[in-house]
Simulated scan of single mutants.
Amino acid sequence: MLKKITVALLTLGLLACNAEHKATAPVAKKETPLPVKVVVVTMFEIGEDSGDTAGEFQLWNERRKLDQVLPFHGHHDLHYNPESQILGMVTGIGTAKSAASVMALGMDPRFDLSKAYWLVAGISGFDPADASIGSAAWADYVVDGDLAHEIDPREIPEDWPFGYFARDSKGPMDKRPEPSGEVFALNKSLSDWAYGLTKDMKLQDFPGMEPVRALYTETPAAQREPFVLKGDNLAAMTYWHGDLMNDWANRWVDYWTDGEGQFVSSAMEDTGTYQSLLWLSKTGRADVQRLMVLRTASNYTTPPPGMTAVENLLKDNEGYPGLQASLESAYSVGSVVIDELLANWDSYKDAIPRSIN
């Protein structure tokens, strides 16, 4: 009996101690999410984030002083400037990585992205019929180049221009079915506003680009010094090249945008970025209407006269002729828009800027 009483008293004592401990234990403080005004979305970096050969991220990291490095369970750690509240990310190359990275960031409780503007600032191939290397294009549409049916060109009917055609259709350029991820329309008023701020900029013309431009004797736009334009993006996981593929790209963008869009830039990621932001918008964690896509020309999507598609593609693999210029254009053009947003944040926080045209 004495043993039972002793055990009971000890139990009551422990319970009392636990209760007292719980009453006096400090309550964990809930951290306030970091406010973000602009997310700069880049897709790759070549080596280190600073001090070596630059990829898409490095100029932003160095010049915007994104010195606070935040571990991220994605392709690349995040970089943040607490004063400007700019957040820089590197998604990784390809639609799958961009979609996953943007979704992971959007669901990260460390950040308040509800008012953030998203600027995709990346390099790409440009159609020489529209612009020159080093040029920068603001997009109204991003079109997916992967969701489709395909027949090998050696087996297509003789009257088909190519073997690629929309799902739920009967052949190339057949009546367009209802889109289900093949095309996304950006906020045109916002892209027009961004274009209006930057359209008269003089972009840096790097040594060595003029001889490359001069090869494109049949496309005057390709021979111009770099400039800012409006033009839409085709995102496809396959790195394609050549006149025939370029013809397909122009027709594919025209087809999916009902003639409203114009193919200019070829890249791999932007439909994935848009798709994640679209779904994040439904949760209130982000706003896809605040997405801007700026692509700059590191190379052309077709070879110059007298060179085959294979020859030019392999030459591009040795180094893009406009890489340095395209990186500089992405930073300089994108920065004009970011600086305007930051300088007038009280206005733009709650009201998305609109074109005055």
Rank of each mutant, 00 (worst) to 15 (best):
A148Q: 14
H149G: 00
H149R: 13
H149Q: 13
I151M: 12
D152S: 12
P153R: 14
R154Y: 06
E155A: 12
P157F: 02
E158A: 15
D159F: 01
D159K: 04
D159P: 04
D159E: 13
W160A: 12
F162E: 02
F162S: 01
G163S: 06
G163V: 05
A166N: 11
R167H: 07
R167E: 14
D168E: 14
D168K: 12
S169F: 01
S169P: 06
S169G: 05
K170G: 02
K170Y: 09
G171P: 04
G171N: 01
G171T: 03
P172N: 08
P172A: 05
P172R: 06
P172G: 07
M173E: 13
M173V: 03
M173I: 04
D174W: 05
D174K: 01
D174R: 00
K175H: 09
R176W: 01
P177A: 04
P177I: 03
P179R: 07
P179E: 11
S180C: 07
G181R: 12
V183F: 05
V183L: 05
V183A: 13
L186V: 01
K188W: 03
K188Y: 00
S189G: 11
L190S: 04
L190Y: 10
S191W: 01
S191T: 13
S191I: 00
D192Q: 15
D192G: 03
W193K: 11
A194M: 01
A194K: 01
A194S: 13
G196D: 15
G196E: 15
L197N: 05
T198V: 06
K199L: 02
M201N: 00
K202M: 03
L203H: 02
L203A: 04
L203R: 01
Q204P: 00
Q204I: 12
D205N: 13
D205I: 00
D205F: 08
F206N: 08
F206W: 15
F206L: 14
F206A: 10
P207M: 09
P207Y: 11
G208K: 10
G208N: 09
G208P: 11
M209D: 14
V212E: 15
R213Y: 09
R213L: 11
R213T: 08
A214W: 12
A214V: 07
L215I: 00
L215Q: 15
Y216F: 15
Y216I: 05
T217M: 01
T219M: 13
T219V: 05
A221C: 03
A222Q: 02
E225Y: 07
E225W: 04
P226V: 14
F227L: 14
L229D: 10
L229Y: 11
K230S: 09
K230N: 09
G231W: 10
D232R: 00
A235Y: 05
A235D: 09
A235M: 07
M237C: 04
T238I: 11
Y239I: 10
Y239C: 00
Y239L: 13
Y239T: 01
G242E: 03
L244E: 10
N246M: 06
N246K: 03
